[in-house]
Design a protein around this nucleic acid. Sequence first.
DNA 1: CTAAAACCTGACGTTGGCGTCAGGGGCAAG
DNA 2: CTTGCCCCTGACGCCAACGTCAGGTTTTAG
Lengths: 125, 125
Amino acid sequence: MTVTEAAAERLIRIGEVARGAGVSVRAVRYYEQQGLLVAERSPSGQRLYRPDAIPLVRFFQQMFAAGLNSRRITELLPCWDSGHTDAEQRAMLRAERDRIQAKADDLQAALDRLDELIAVTDTHP
Amino acid sequence: MTVTEAAAERLIRIGEVARGAGVSVRAVRYYEQQGLLVAERSPSGQRLYRPDAIPLVRFFQQMFAAGLNSRRITELLPCWDSGHTDAEQRAMLRAERDRIQAKADDLQAALDRLDELIAVTDTHP
DNA sequence: CTAAAACCTGACGTTGGCGTCAGGGGCAAG
DNA sequence: CTTGCCCCTGACGCCAACGTCAGGTTTTAG
């Protein structure tokens, strides 16, 4: 087994990425289109990913769930990849963090509201 | 002042509802269209609301923020209004509550992720 | 070898909560 | 009177993250 083959063996196709991350194949293609994900190509044109594409896609999902859009995520990706940031990026990180915190607070308020309603409707059937 | 006049004095127009709840006039009309909100009409056709439309609209916003859509909210409105529910509605309330809780957990995970990233980029400038 | 499974590139469809424009009306202040 | 503010009804526009269909190639299992 050559070094090249050993390296090639670490590449997976889009279906495996999708299954591994729990998203659709279409979603993975979409991420590439948005510049979130880069893939090599096999001679026949199929996308080939390194295995760490899976946790990366999970990270995307997490950020999407937190309300960030593709563009924001691409802007944050350099920090994620390199651990290296300029002041502007650090400010953006904190801004997003605060937005998510506020959103979490809103959710908690909604939760309290519903719990209150549940308590009333349970004692008041 | 007659009783009727006293009652009429308690009715406000759409602009006041919108300002009071911090949403657009368009949004309030939309809520009516979705069956979330009912309004009386003045002889000239203007919508007239009781003042408690304002907290009600705030409640809608809170539920929207929690990821419920108009239809779900209309389904939950009877509980909210009357405090009376059947088994199906109580199940729905709990299901939504659990969904929101899961969402809150996701947000917290995203927050932890970002905080971790912030810590790294701060010590690693 | 062959059939099924997986992959490819477009490109249009969906969903929801509004924004926004078009065109028109009423009504109190100056 | 007219100016300006608020209100009305449609109806099209928008955005974002995909779903989905069409029509064709590649890879894999038996």
